[in-house]
Design a protein around this nucleic acid. Sequence first.
DNA 1: ATGAAAGCGCTAACAA
DNA 2: TTGTTAGCGCTTTCAT
Lengths: 353, 353
Amino acid sequence: MNDGPAKASPTLEDVAREAGVSRATVSRVINGVRNVDPGIQDVVRRAVEATGYVPNRAARSLVTRRAGAVALVVSGAGEDEAAGEGPQAPFRGQVLADPFFGRITTGVVGFLRARGMHPVLMLADSTDARKQVVDYLRQGHADGALLVSTHARDPLPELLVGAGLPCVLFARPARPLPISYVDVAHRDGGALAADHLVARGCQRVASVTGPLDVLASRERLAGFQDAMARHGHPYVPAVEGNFTLESGERAMAGLLAEQPDLDGLFVANDLMAQGALHVLREQGRRVPEQVAVVGFDDSSAAVSSRPALTTVRQPIEEMAAEMTRLLLDRVDQPDRRLTSVIFEPTLVVRQSA
Amino acid sequence: MNDGPAKASPTLEDVAREAGVSRATVSRVINGVRNVDPGIQDVVRRAVEATGYVPNRAARSLVTRRAGAVALVVSGAGEDEAAGEGPQAPFRGQVLADPFFGRITTGVVGFLRARGMHPVLMLADSTDARKQVVDYLRQGHADGALLVSTHARDPLPELLVGAGLPCVLFARPARPLPISYVDVAHRDGGALAADHLVARGCQRVASVTGPLDVLASRERLAGFQDAMARHGHPYVPAVEGNFTLESGERAMAGLLAEQPDLDGLFVANDLMAQGALHVLREQGRRVPEQVAVVGFDDSSAAVSSRPALTTVRQPIEEMAAEMTRLLLDRVDQPDRRLTSVIFEPTLVVRQSA
DNA sequence: ATGAAAGCGCTAACAA
DNA sequence: TTGTTAGCGCTTTCAT
């Protein structure tokens, strides 16, 4: 009750004095170590309450050699992108504004907070930034990294593995690497789209793909094509896009010129699908009556499009949570063997197909 | 070069030995303290290189009493929202997937990374979570908080101020509070929209507002109305929305029923404006020829709409960077006086008006 | 079951 | 300008 000169926050020592026990005992109570007399536990807890004690993280980390934190790293463009970047260049990409990334964050935060932990957000979009990430971890700011690469040839996973730092990827690495990851069964997603279009009675389907140097894009297409083949459609016209709205518009226009009697379409992400919808409307095609469209991602674009998009949903939050669980396991047991966890996508049916 | 038994990472002591100086000298070089012989500086730097030394953050924090980190807190619904939330309930809101929040994050990260810092992401959407935030800071995980409230009556700012923790808000607090913040001149934004619509020759304008219990919504509307009044239009019909796409559709339908000869519209955010566009198209109104539409935010919805939205842009990244600067200043000089920084919005002209 | 004591790696007086 | 030294607050053997 003596607030006196309002001094620095109380330490273990203060609590120990208040409780009439030793620092060690207080420490044991706080960390839930057994072998402490229940009566004493109560006294200590009361003393903690009375003093308003909170453990000092730095002191604890110093001895446990654990930060009790993980980094969430968004690894951008492979090499330093803009050659003429200013000395600061703070606002280049808008990666973080991508709802895809938002869902990952939601999953990660949701999992961590239950353990009293929170992610440190890092951007790694240049050689320097990647070095910063490695150093940051080596300094012990975080015990490991959750890695989300936006581009294929990202060197960061290799750097991290090389430095012996615990790390889990969101999505299978482009090149084989001794590293754990979570991913979605992209092929199954493509198949889901094909099955749905065929079930609707579509006869002349086509696809707008993502960039084909991205593994996920190839897999979505392959899954779609394979399933179509199984339904008796040996050939599916496909145009490559780059996941942007504009590329979706371009691809749709091209496809329509090539194959005007098109009646079904699988687009490798919702944003391009939204672009496709624009072009179909401009050209007077009714969706879904004349052309059925299936997207991928179940992003906000799917909900805000008119008609709203039928789309393949990845359970991103769940994947992110699992990724976090894998990392925490790894931090606790560094020599545990590597794991990959693959999630199944689902079809969300709305108006467009 | 001796990797030997691959032991723990090198300490200051190791570097000192390698360089043939004392720990203190190495520390001085590393922290850029002057009064160190340039020759010795070189030797030390070489030793750092040779040993692969990186400073241990825990040890440093323990003595400096600085975490060298800040928290970025997204403070959700006022009270515990869902009464029946499970013990974990990880995926409730999708706040983090909001591109608005993404832009804030981009600004914060951009500013911090130049200083070798990174934000710790926290969600505070329940009484428990808010307590967690305060404790987290008190434990010294972070030196202060950047606070983004999604709801008006958020009690967290007061908690933080009460605990004497450094803190800066994004947006003016609902109730007066001794706290620094950044904000945008919402009234000026509304005026920008009015001026543009009038300049286009619109005669019968209306507005779809945000929730009127939110200060920013009221200000945007007031700015719009005032400017219209200055242009000789004493009365502007307005319908209240809640910032969602659907509410925009509803509001537009209502407005159109009430005032079918409408030729200009100011919508308090882009998502609702996108909804308004849908309804206008359904009812066969050409935008912008028959009805000109101005949105607010310059979000991704503005770019993906057809026609693309003319909209009022807030310089969110810059605001977030400034917010971060204010916090860091505050952490360094705790008794510095409070500040508010207000940014001017700009009009981004696209196709809709 | 509890206490005493030895550091974890670093910075910051204070001496020299 | 450099070195010596005393902790920062905590966990963790090792005794008891």
